[in-house]
Each structure stands twice: as structure tokens, then as C-alpha cells.
Simulated assay, not measured.
Amino acid sequence: MKDRNIIYRSEIYVYDQDRPLPAVVRNYTEEDFDDLIQIQSECFPPPFPSELWWNKEQLKNHVTLFPEGALCIEVNGELAGSLTGLITDFDPEHPNHTWEEVTDNGYIRNHNPNGNTLYIVDISVRPKYRKLGLGKIMMQSMYHVVIQKGLDRLLGGGRMPGYHKKADEMSASEYLQAVVKGELKDPVITFLLRCGRMPIGVVENYLEDEESCGYAALMEWKNPFK
């Protein structure tokens, strides 16, 4: 397949209960930066440190180095969420890594156009829009990018924010299996399962994340055409 930059735009309807609302999934651009930072502030309010929200240098790199991996969704003309990815070369035999390492701390200067894996850097949805299924819609849109670019998979580390409540009773791997079996629910892992992502293991020291006790579940979606 001939490689080219995707200018992604998909017009759809999302449902607020029984009420359809017009929505658009598209690539985000420099004109969206202020809104994207505002979304981060709503998704990660204090005491989350504001210096860890997106900054304009990071966002500039996203739209410059890999614009195909910079997606956002509008609902009724308002920016409601974003999903950011980069391409990396992933070796399933050596899965351990940290978020900082694989995403260049969100700056994606290590984006590798010749890699085999689209790696999810971040997904954010404004709290007031979180019952509309926007995260799943954006994730499915990123699957289109995986297919168009002929990559092997989409991959990312999923936080396990419910794990700290069970850490005294089970290992992180056992917690993940309990969520997969439906014995437990986890707000992030359950969401990723609903998006079609499959767990391939647990990595430790992925993020400084007390709720997940530093663990993350590696969650994969394989390109069905490969």
C-alpha cells in the first residue's frame, strides 16, 4: 500500500441517551492546541500537577512528526477529546518498557516511521462527554490508521487504577485476569476490553501511579489483515 499522510475526517452521530448529536473525528491541528490543553486540565484537575498537561511544544511535535496519529473528536462543534499515538518498533519477546521511554515523555521525538506498532501515547475525553462512547470511537479510528499504514498492531499500556484496592490480595497479573474474566471491573482495563484490545501481559514501573501501584497492562489490537 502506498504510504501517504492521512487527512482523517469522519462525520458520525453519537447518542446522548436517545438524542443523536453530530460529531466529527479528525486530525487535530495547531488551531486546537488551546482547547486540547483545556481538555487536559478538565481530565486531570488539581492536585494533578499542571506541568504534566500537554504543552504546546509536545502538541507541535504530534502534528509535525506524526499528524496521522493526532486525532480529536468534536461534538456539536465543541472539541470533546483527543487520542495521540506514535509508531515504534515493538519486540513481543522483550515487552518491558516505561511510558516515558516509549513516548519520549510525550514529545514523540523517537517516532519511527519504519516501526511495526502504533503506540498510544494518551487518550483524553472531557468529563461532560464521557457517557457518549467517544473514547471507543477514537480508538476505532486509530485502528483505521494501523490498517492504512500496514502496521502489525496497536499497543499501549493501560493503567489499572482499581489495583491498589486489591494489591494485598493478588498480584497485578492476577488482578488483570480477574478483570478479563469479569470477576472485577476496572475503569481503564474494562474500557480497553470494550474497545477490542487484548491483554498480552503486565509491565511494572510503567508510570508513577499510586492507584495502579506502578503497573500497567499491555493491551494490544492486532491488524486483522496481517
Rank of each mutant, 00 (worst) to 15 (best):
G77M: 03
L36T: 10
L193E: 00
G81V: 06
P187K: 09
D104Q: 01
P199Q: 02
I147E: 15
W53L: 13
N61S: 05
E183I: 01
H111V: 00
N55D: 15
D209G: 04
L59F: 01
V25K: 02
A216K: 00
D122Y: 13
I73E: 07
N5P: 09
E57D: 15
M219T: 02
K131M: 13
W99Y: 07
E78I: 13
Y107T: 15
F48K: 02
I12L: 12
A178D: 02
Y206V: 01
F66A: 05
L86H: 10
M1Y: 10
G150S: 04
E57C: 06
I200A: 00
I6A: 07
K2C: 05
I12W: 05
G150M: 06
A217P: 06
S173W: 04
K166Q: 10
N205H: 08
D34M: 05
V24R: 03
W54M: 13
A80E: 07
K128G: 06
R4H: 09
R197W: 09
L154E: 11
P22I: 06
Y175E: 00
R194C: 13
C195R: 08
Q58P: 07
L184W: 01
L21K: 14
E51M: 10
V145P: 12
A167T: 10
L21S: 05
I189M: 11
V145Q: 15
D104F: 01
L36C: 12
L154V: 11
Q17R: 14
S82M: 15
P46V: 11
T103G: 03
I123H: 06
N116W: 03
Y206N: 02
E51A: 12
T84R: 15
V188M: 09
E183P: 01
L36V: 14
Q17G: 09
E220G: 03
I37R: 12
P127D: 09
R26T: 13
G133Y: 13
Y13M: 14
M142K: 07
I108W: 05
P67I: 05
Q140I: 04
F225K: 08
G115S: 05
D168V: 08
A167W: 04
N105A: 11
T29Q: 14
Y175N: 00
K60M: 14
C72Q: 12
F44Q: 08
P46Y: 08
V25H: 02
E78C: 12
A172W: 01
E11G: 11
R126N: 14
N61G: 02
E68K: 07
D209Q: 05
L79C: 11
I137F: 01
A217K: 01
T117I: 00
L193Q: 00
I6L: 15
V125Y: 02
N55R: 05
N55S: 02
D89M: 01
T190P: 04
D32T: 07
S124T: 13
G133T: 12
P187T: 09
Y143R: 10
D35V: 06
I7W: 08
